[in-house]
Amino acid sequence: MTAAAPAPLPVIVVMGVSGSGKSTVGGLLAERLGVPYAEADDFHPAANIAKMAAGHPLDDTDRAPWLDAIAAWIAERGDRGGVVSCSALRRRYRDRLRADAPGLFFLHLDGSPELIASRLAARMQHFMPSGLLASQFEALEPLEADEAGAVIPITGGPQQITERALAALPCRSGSGSD
């Protein structure tokens, strides 16, 4: 009997508000899966970073080119897998990311505003001020039943959160390819 080939690994979006651990968990998850990792902040135009650093939330016009750049990275991954961090707070943003990648899988890192605020307060060298956290929670639209994904509690350390994320994936593989 021949072993069945493993199912292709989907591209995974690690989503949530600022300070939820997207970059840390996303990097660890990609490492564990053996796939490339992309940091959504790297896709922002300089004007977006300056706006957020000044304490102003982005609007949908600001987000459009950023989401399009992330969606292009996702589409390039095909069925080879990959992990990208992206706040993806609203359903319409997730729909935009999934437009050319229907197999996209979202991992929503979820925690209380108090926990995330404490993490933001301890974070150094990031352009996102903690004053914008409330606007992110206001904008957050949880995953809906028809969206492929899972909610991952962010209690515990990065390794524990990553283990929960791995367990939630629809197909697990320790060896991805690029």
Rank of each mutant, 00 (worst) to 15 (best):
P142L: 09
E138M: 14
D146M: 10
S87G: 05
P45S: 10
R63L: 00
D68Q: 12
A50K: 13
M1R: 15
A148Y: 07
P6S: 09
M52T: 12
V11C: 15
N48M: 13
V35R: 09
T24H: 01
F106V: 13
K51R: 10
H126M: 06
N48I: 11
Q160T: 14
M1L: 14
A30F: 05
L132Y: 07
A167I: 06
G176N: 10
R90K: 15
S173N: 09
P142H: 09
I74V: 15
A46W: 04
G157V: 03
A4F: 10
Q136L: 07
E144S: 12
L97N: 07
M1V: 15
E76C: 08
L104Q: 03
M128V: 09
P57E: 03
S18L: 05
E114H: 12
G19H: 05
P65K: 02
D146L: 11
R77M: 07
P158T: 08
L166I: 12
D146Y: 00
H56I: 14
H56Y: 12
R94Y: 01
M15C: 14
A40H: 04
E39Y: 13
P10E: 07
V13M: 03
D68W: 04
V14M: 06
R80V: 14
A64Q: 11
E39P: 12
Y93E: 01
T61S: 11
A165W: 02
E147C: 02
M52Q: 11
A168T: 09
Q136N: 00
R98Q: 03
D100P: 00
A99R: 10
T61P: 00
F105P: 02
A40C: 10
R94H: 08
P158M: 04
S118L: 14
N48G: 08
M1C: 14
R92K: 11
A46M: 10
R123E: 00
P158D: 06
G34F: 07
S87C: 08
V35P: 07
G81D: 08
Q160K: 09
V13Y: 03
A47F: 10
A53F: 03
E147M: 04
V13I: 15
G149Q: 06
S135Q: 00
P36L: 13
A75L: 09
G34W: 09
G131Y: 11
R96A: 11
G26R: 09
A47N: 07
V84D: 01
A46L: 03
S87K: 08
P45K: 04
T162R: 00
R119M: 09
G21V: 10
D146S: 10
G34S: 13
E76V: 11
E138T: 11
G103N: 15
Y37N: 06
A134S: 12
G149I: 06
A71C: 09
P6R: 02
L67F: 05
A38T: 01
R96M: 07
F106M: 11
P65V: 13
I152T: 08
K22V: 09
M124W: 00
R91T: 12
A4H: 12
E141N: 01
Q136P: 01
A30G: 15
E76H: 02
G55N: 06
I152G: 05
F105V: 12
H56T: 14
Q136S: 01
A139H: 00
M124Y: 01
A150S: 12
